[in-house]
């Protein structure tokens, strides 16, 4: 569980470049949540989640973040314990790749937890397969000499190999091909049994609508509200006031309604839309 209490954050304080990125944020992410964070460019999403594994230190008198009893505003934080618990995949995977081979890169995390070489390697190989890469082909290559989507998969594998309890993903499917997107989301759902809490930043509203049970909307460093997908995407006023766009499937449903096809306007997935259209048009199942 992650509690964010009155969190504020200022970049480069007391300089001409100072930017306040977060204003008095309050959020409660519960165990079991698939928690979406959305908001336009520069809203503060990455800054917010970078607090969750203490990559960004909480500033003086700027609130608190508590991750399962670990108080991140404390003077001394048990970083090892925290980072074993919270796995974070960055917005740009380049920022977390560092070793000279893919295998070593992924083994680094587990080894850091004190796991022996053989098991760390086993975990790394399992993780490589889970993210849809071919171990034989890729294990000994440099992570920097991969395509964009391959790098993202390696970064994710590095985090999965640590078996975290909370997974924080900053635009995890950006740069992945369509199958890759689906595979990665399926993978996240699968590991959710052992890693019950997932926090995901995304600009892809279809993904947010399909997978998240709660959605926090950030705007200019402030939380506009936390909603269920149906609440948010079903309400024109909320979408308008929060500056949020519809998922493509929901947009299609709205357009269909406009043309007299009476489908539910708050559909959130492709399958729901398909069933709604069949119902509205009166197609018997083939």
């Amino acid at each position: 569980m992650i509690e964010v209490k009155n969190l504020s954050f200022v970049y480069s304080p007391k300089t001409p470049f100072t930017t306040q990125a977060l204003f008095d944020i309050n959020l409660s992410i519960e165990t079991g949540d698939f928690f979406g964070i959305i908001g336009s460019t520069g809203a503060g999403k990455s800054t917010l989640v970078s607090h969750f594994n203490a990559l960004t230190k909480i500033q003086k008198n700027s609130g608190a973040v508590i991750v399962d009893e670990i108080d991140l505003s404390a003077k001394k934080i048990d970083l090892k314990k925290l980072r074993a618990k919270v796995g974070m995949v960055f917005q740009y995977p380049e920022h977390q790749l560092f070793a000279d081979t893919v295998l070593k890169d992924i083994m680094f995390g587990p080894k850091n937890l004190g796991i022996n070489n053989a098991e760390a390697e086993q975990r790394a190989r399992d993780a490589i397969a889970l993210v849809g890469l071919d171990c034989a082909e890729i294990a000994e290559r440099s992570p920097f000499e991969l395509s964009g989507g391959q790098k993202r998969r390696v970064a994710l594998a590095g985090v999965i190999a640590m078996h975290p309890e909370i997974l924080v993903l900053d635009e995890p499917t950006a740069g992945l091909d369509p199958k890759g997107k689906r595979e990665i989301m399926d993978l996240i759902l699968r590991i959710k049994a052992d890693c019950p809490t997932v926090v995901m930043i995304s600009h892809n509203m279809d993904e947010i609508a399909e997978y998240c049970n709660k959605i926090a909307v950030l705007r200019r460093g402030r939380v506009m509200g936390v909603f269920s997908p149906r609440e948010l995407f079903g309400s024109e006023e909320l979408l308008e006031s929060c500056g949020v766009e519809l998922p493509l499937v929901t947009e299609l449903a709205v357009k269909l309604n406009g043309l007299g096809v009476a489908v539910d306007k708050s559909v959130l997935t492709e399958n729901e839309l398909f069933e709604e259209i069949k119902k509205a048009v009166g197609v018997k199942n083939a």
Binding site: L252, G258, L259, V261, I277, A280, V281, V283, K284
Partner: peptide, 21 residues
């Protein structure tokens, strides 16, 4: 069993479904 062709935009899709209905 519907006939909506192969629409390539959101508008084409909606129009094709409305027509089929």
């Amino acid at each position: 069993g519907m006939d909506v062709g192969c629409p390539l935009t959101a508008d084409e899709f909606a129009a094709a479904v409305a027509k089929a209905q």
